[in-house]
Structures are given as structure tokens and as C-alpha cells.
Design a protein around this nucleic acid. Structure first.
Lengths: 215, 215
DNA sequence: CTTCGATTACTCGTAGGCGAGTATACGTCG
DNA sequence: CGACGTATACTCGCCTACGAGTAATCGAAG
């Protein structure tokens, strides 16, 4: 089992990969990441940045190289990546690419509690989601196309992937909506009453027992 | 703008939805969630559970109803959902269903730092991912089929969705692999050298400038 | 030349997340 | 019938995340 990463925040990986190119001070790391649009793919929070950098240093993945002050600015510390840090970044990347994780999204959470709403209410909500999804997809596609000249494909794969996933999600929502609209979704009546009474219909009581043997 | 939720952890929503059915003590909530397999869709951490319940109570979404002790067990507190709590749960569910969020996955993070590895190394990693994905898909499909009789479709949508997303991911990885294998992925040579030297080829230096106007 | 706003660069406080530990009851095997 | 493992039901405390605040610098306007 891969031991836990010394610094688990994904921001740490981002930091490592920029600092591999040249030594930097924290604020600069964030600027570069921001400029590259990496804030779309990863969480970049100001508060976390300094904590993460400090922890990376503590674990020997980064080292302070210079603590000079330019002009009279508040003392900036410039960090350089160590060999250990370089290895960690590569290994981490390998793991992220090779290991498909279970990472439930908030939509999944929403679906799993959907039964608490009336079916009649769910349909317009899903329709709204679909609308927004389609807007995002159009916007993403435009952005991607405009970047194709100038930026090599290699640096756009993550955007391509994100776009593909959104399209897949839209398709799935569309098909669920189709079933709900056509009335072919089973047990709509039971759902209705389940919601109105708030009570679980008897034959679902044993749902509580459904163990998931496959692990 | 929807104000921030009084308790932001998704576990709180799960708690609310089980406690709507009948009053419970914290440990029981967790057991029920676990038994329903909700731990697949949402994070259920023991440590968080009690914090979350306490916060829900503090904000008036739950209320303690009885603090009796059965036998000589350590005093258990049973909680009941309030009207406010019920509303919050419904509203939260609506938001989750209707609002497609930007939630970068770890694979996306991996892709966005993929360039740090040599192309020759990336291919087997992706192949490995595809393998594992296919196993998961097969297992999920089996589990889902075995539950279809007994559990109404309504309570399986989230699993269906998760499965669909995995399949979409697998398809995407497959197509990327095909390009890499066939050598049709552009600039493989540049990638190779980029990785060997660790240095950014000159024409990508302005990549740092690529601003994302669309917001 | 000084005032004002924006940008740069960071610090700090605190709330929340979560694992590891703890204590009690219950079953069961000798 | 007592000793020991296992399930139940939590508590504690560290550590991380992160927003809100702060302080210095720079540029431009008056």
C-alpha cells in the first residue's frame, strides 16, 4: 500500500510542478498557477498555499534558497525543489494517472437523496441542470478551440477530459429526463406517495439490509 | 446568491435525510447510512459524524429529544429533525440537483501535470487505469443487476449515474491511448525533450500568459 | 509631492475534519 | 462462571484548510 503522502493537499503537487521549472517564492507560484489556468483543475486557496509550502519544506520536498528582500518588500523566501520533492511529484503523478479513485461528486449525493423530493419537482430541477450544463459545454468548447493554436495539445488534455465528462453527464441527465417525461420510469406513483407520507413503503424497509458484498 | 449552508459537510445532508424517517442517535444514523450503501456516494467519517450532529443541533436543524440510557450503556442522545432542518434538506437537495458544479477530480489533476512524465511512461500508466476501470465497471454492473429485483429503481439512480460516468471515463482513456499508440498525438518528440530537459520549449513560454477571459 | 486606490505578499485565528483511542456491554468457549 | 474477543457508542485532540485581515509598494491623479 502506498504510504500516505507527506503533504496530502493536491495544491502541493501543483506547487511542486511549477517549482521544478525554477525556484520561486510562494506568491509567485500561485500567480503562475493562476496564469496557467490551473485554478480550474485544482483548488488554489491563498490560506492553504503558505501552509502547504511550509509543510513541503518540513518534509524536505522543498528548501529555502534565499531569503533576501527586494527593495524594502517584506522579506520573501524563495524555495527550490529538492531531489526528494522531484521524486515525490513524479510518483504522485503516476498514482493519479494509474489509479481510478472513488470520488463521489455532489451530483451523486444529490441523486442519492432525490427521493425526498416529489417527482414533479425533480423534473424541472434536472431540466435546469441540463440547461446550465449545455451553456458550460458551449463555453468550454469555445475556450478550448481558441487555445488550440498557440498551446500544444499536451497542455490541453485535462480540459478536453473535463469537457468530455460534462458531455457524458449531460447525455445521462437527458436520458433520465426522457424516462421521467415519458412516464416509463417505474413506480412513479409509489415515489409520489413515498414523498407525501414521508414513510417508506413496506417492501423497501429491507432496503436497509441491502449489504454490498462486492468491495 | 444562496447563502452558505449552516453546516457545509455533505454528511450533514445524509444525516438529515435518515433522521427525517425517524428519530435516532448518532451511531444509529451512521449504521443506517452504511447499511444503505450511502458510504459509496458520500464521505462518512466517524470523527466528523459527531461534530456534524452537534453543529446541526446548534443551528436548530436537529433537536435532542431524549437522553435516556438503555441498560447501563453510555448515555445516548436521540435526535429529531426540526421543521427548519426538513426545509434545509429539501433546499439543499434542490441545489445539488439543479446546479452543475466545477468539481475537479484527482484524475484531472493528474492529467494537468502529466507533462512532467515521459510519454513512454504515461502509456502503461493509462493502460493500467483502463484495466482497473474495466474491472470496477464489471463489478458495479454485477452489483447493480443483483439489486434490481428488490430495490426500486428510484434508489439506484445514483449507482446508475456513477456507472455511466465510469464508462465515459473509460471510453475517453481508451481514445487517448489509441492516439498515443498510433503516434497521432501531436508533438510527441517535443514532449519527450520537454521532459528530458525539464525546460519549457520557447514557444510555450507564453503559455504562462494564456489568460482565460471566459469566466 | 502627496494622496488614494490597486496590487503584491503574506500572517493569523479559528472552525471543521478525522483518526486514534476508550469504555462499556455482550456473547461464547473452556 | 470467569476470561477474552468483538461489537457498540462515543470522546479527544491534533492538524489542516482557508477566509479575513494587514502591511508594504507602485502608479497615476491632483
Amino acid at each position: 500500500m502506498a504510504r500516505r503522502r507527506p503533504v496530502s493537499n493536491l495544491l502541493a503537487l501543483a506547487v511542486l510542478t511549477v517549482v521544478v521549472q525554477r525556484p520561486m517564492h510562494p506568491y509567485e507560484m500561485a500567480s503562475v498557477l493562476r496564469a496557467r489556468g490551473k485554478d480550474q483543475d485544482m483548488p488554489i486557496k491563498w490560506g492553504s498555499l503558505y501552509t502547504v509550502v511550509r509543510n513541503l519544506e518540513k518534509h524536505g520536498l522543498l528548501e529555502a534558497v534565499e531569503s533576501g528582500r527586494q527593495g524594502a518588500r517584506p522579506e520573501r523566501t524563495v524555495y527550490r525543489v529538492t531531489d526528494v520533492g522531484r521524486d515525490e511529484a513524479a510518483d504522485w503523478t503516476r498514482e493519479l494517472l494509474a489509479t481510478p479513485g472513488r470520488e463521489p461528486t455532489s451530483f451523486e449525493a444529490g441523486l442519492s437523496v432525490m427521493a425526498g423530493l416529489a417527482p414533479g419537482e425533480v423534473v424541472p430541477l434536472l431540466r435546469r441542470r441540463l440547461e446550465l450544463l449545455e451553456e458550460q459545454i458551449a463555453a468550454d468548447r469555445r475556450a478550448l478551440d481558441s487555445e488550440r493554436d498557440g498551446v500544444p495539445r499536451l497542455f490541453l488534455v485535462e480540459s478536453e477530459y473535463a469537457l468530455a465528462m460534462r458531455e457524458a453527464q449531460a447525455a445521462w441527465v437527458r436520458s433520465l429526463l426522457a424516462e421521467l417525461d415519458a412516464g416509463t420510469f417505474p413506480e412513479l406513483a409509489a415515489w409520489e406517495s413515498f414523498h407525501r407520507t414521508g414513510e417508506i413503503p413496506p417492501h423497501v424497509a429491507d432496503l436497509a439490509e441491502r449489504g454490498r458484498p462486492a468491495d
